[in-house]
Computed example of a mutant assay.
Amino acid sequence: MSCSRRNFLAGTGAVIFTTGVATTSVITARSSVASEETEKAVRYGMLHDENACIGCTACTDACREVNKVPEGVSRLEIHRSEPIGEYPDVEYRFTRESCQHCENPPCVYVCPTGAAYKDEKTGIIDVHKEKCVGCGYCLAACPYQVRFFHPEDHSADKCNFCRDTNLAQGKLPACVESCPTKALVFGDLNDPNSDINKMLSIKVIYRDKEHLGTKPKLFKAAFHKGGVV
Rank of each mutant, 00 (worst) to 15 (best):
residue 70 P to D: 01
residue 24 T to K: 07
residue 86 E to K: 15
residue 61 D to I: 15
residue 17 F to D: 09
residue 48 H to N: 13
residue 110 V to I: 10
residue 229 V to Y: 04
residue 220 K to G: 00
residue 6 R to H: 05
residue 10 A to R: 08
residue 179 C to M: 08
residue 96 R to E: 15
residue 92 Y to Q: 04
residue 112 P to K: 00
residue 194 S to N: 05
residue 189 L to N: 04
residue 108 V to A: 12
residue 163 R to Q: 15
residue 73 V to G: 04
residue 11 G to D: 05
residue 54 I to G: 02
residue 189 L to M: 11
residue 173 P to T: 06
residue 93 R to D: 14
residue 204 V to Y: 07
residue 86 E to H: 14
residue 206 Y to Q: 14
residue 39 E to I: 06
residue 215 K to G: 08
residue 78 I to Y: 00
residue 203 K to G: 01
residue 131 K to W: 11
residue 169 Q to P: 04
residue 97 E to W: 09
residue 119 D to Q: 07
residue 98 S to M: 14
residue 45 G to F: 05
residue 56 C to E: 07
residue 79 H to W: 10
residue 118 K to Y: 12
residue 69 V to S: 03
residue 148 F to L: 04
residue 226 G to E: 02
residue 60 T to L: 07
residue 130 E to M: 05
residue 110 V to M: 04
residue 192 P to Y: 02
residue 159 C to G: 08
residue 48 H to F: 14
residue 208 D to N: 13
residue 152 E to H: 09
residue 110 V to F: 02
residue 80 R to Q: 15
residue 217 K to L: 13
residue 110 V to N: 02
residue 40 K to F: 10
residue 183 A to L: 10
residue 55 G to R: 01
residue 158 K to P: 05
residue 37 E to V: 12
residue 36 E to S: 12
residue 21 V to N: 09
residue 224 H to V: 13
residue 135 C to T: 01
residue 168 A to Q: 13
residue 190 N to E: 11
residue 102 C to K: 00
residue 224 H to E: 13
residue 228 V to Y: 08
residue 108 V to W: 08
residue 84 I to S: 06
residue 98 S to D: 09
residue 69 V to M: 01
residue 179 C to G: 12
residue 176 V to F: 01
residue 87 Y to I: 11
residue 55 G to Q: 01
residue 112 P to S: 02
residue 205 I to L: 11
residue 138 C to T: 03
residue 15 V to G: 00
residue 70 P to F: 03
residue 119 D to T: 04
residue 124 I to Q: 06
residue 176 V to K: 01
residue 15 V to S: 03
residue 198 K to D: 12
residue 175 C to M: 13
residue 73 V to D: 07
residue 96 R to K: 12
residue 224 H to W: 02
residue 65 E to G: 05
residue 194 S to Y: 06
residue 63 C to V: 08
residue 28 T to V: 13
residue 112 P to N: 01
residue 153 D to T: 09
residue 127 V to S: 05
residue 19 T to H: 15
residue 146 V to R: 00
residue 10 A to V: 09
residue 43 R to T: 12
residue 140 A to V: 05
residue 69 V to R: 05
residue 155 S to M: 06
residue 215 K to W: 12
residue 229 V to I: 12
residue 100 Q to G: 02
